[in-house]
């Protein structure tokens, strides 16, 4: 039994290990180890295309995780006190957002937004003051952030709600018995208790957005995120550069994820 578990862990981590190992390859060929070197990291980090893609990915991940955490938490807190059709409708929305495959979300966002933009652009051009260049709505970083935020909001609502359900209601009642305003109760009782869940939701959202390929593939327009860059370089062939990017991306997401897990675990224990 223990041996079996050990083998599964090997299965899970050997591929990651191999990538990391070959990222230190001194040779030019991706799959032939020719001595140890960190030169591919240097090359990768000085490649302007990689750095541009990284910057786009970081901006998109940070903004959408932030929006999703704020709006998702707001919705989760409100849903806590609601019954009836509004609650059912919201549960449905969250269910749809999670159930529909990412690729269909990407497609829908692409053709939905392009159709809306095609209607709005002539209108904007007509309304814009003469002589000035009217803004042109198009797919790009904005549409990507909006699409990620939509999906991640559903994720944050689920995570924060799980924490709210496990929360001791009597504390909130005690607080309002002691004449705290609803805002005061929220800031001093509810928020500190759900904060680990919000932070974990933020970190998970960040990693999800940062690693997402399929939605970005459709929605990013002419922008290139890091996963899109990696995907198109893999198409052109396996290079040590991809190993280096892969190792860095995996390391950063591993760190964030372990932090998120610890937050969720710690938060979970306190409520018991």
């Amino acid at each position: 039994m223990r041996l079996y578990a050990f083998c599964v862990y090997l299965f899970l981590y050997i591929p990651i290990g191999v990538i990391a190992l070959f990222s230190f390859n001194a040779g030019r060929h991706a799959s032939q180890m020719q001595g140890f070197s960190t030169k591919w990291y240097g090359k990768t980090l000085s490649n302007p295309f990689v750095m541009d893609a990284l910057e786009t990915s970081l901006i998109v991940a940070f903004t959408s995780a932030l929006c999703a955490s704020v709006f998702g938490t707001m919705a989760a807190v409100a849903l806590q006190g609601i019954r009836g059709p509004l609650r059912t409708a919201f549960d449905m929305l969250i269910y749809i957002a999670v159930m529909i495959p990412g690729i269909v979300i990407g497609i829908a966002t692409l053709i939905g937004l392009v159709t809306v933009f095609d209607q709005l652009n002539p209108l904007l051009a007509a309304l814009w003051p003469e002589g000035l260049n009217p803004p042109k709505l198009r797919m790009g970083m904005g549409s990507l952030i909006a699409a990620h935020t939509m999906f991640l909001m559903a994720l944050v609502v689920i995570i924060v709600r799980a924490r709210l359900v496990g929360m001791d209601r009597s504390l909130i009642e005690a607080s309002s018995d002691l004449y705290a305003t609803p805002m005061g109760t929220f800031m001093q009782v509810t928020l500190p208790m759900i904060f680990p869940a919000i932070l974990a939701g933020f970190l998970l959202s960040f990693t999800f957005s940062f690693d997402d390929f399929i939605i970005a593939f459709f929605v990013a327009g002419s922008e290139t995120t890091l996963p899109i860059y990696v995907f198109s370089s893999i198409r052109r062939g396996v290079t040590p550069e991809i190993n280096a990017i892969g190792t860095m991306v995996l390391s950063v997401s591993l760190l964030l994820l372990i932090a998120a897990q610890l937050l969720l675990q710690r938060g979970g224990h306190k409520s018991k």
Binding site: I16, I19, A30, L250
Partner: peptide, 21 residues
């Protein structure tokens, strides 16, 4: 945690590892 964590890391890079292997 060691089992769950890989799921949340880039599926792109994890599949790439298998192209390699």
């Amino acid at each position: 945690v060691l089992v769950i964590v890989p799921f949340w890391t880039s599926i792109l890079i994890r599949s790439y590892a298998w192209i390699f292997l």
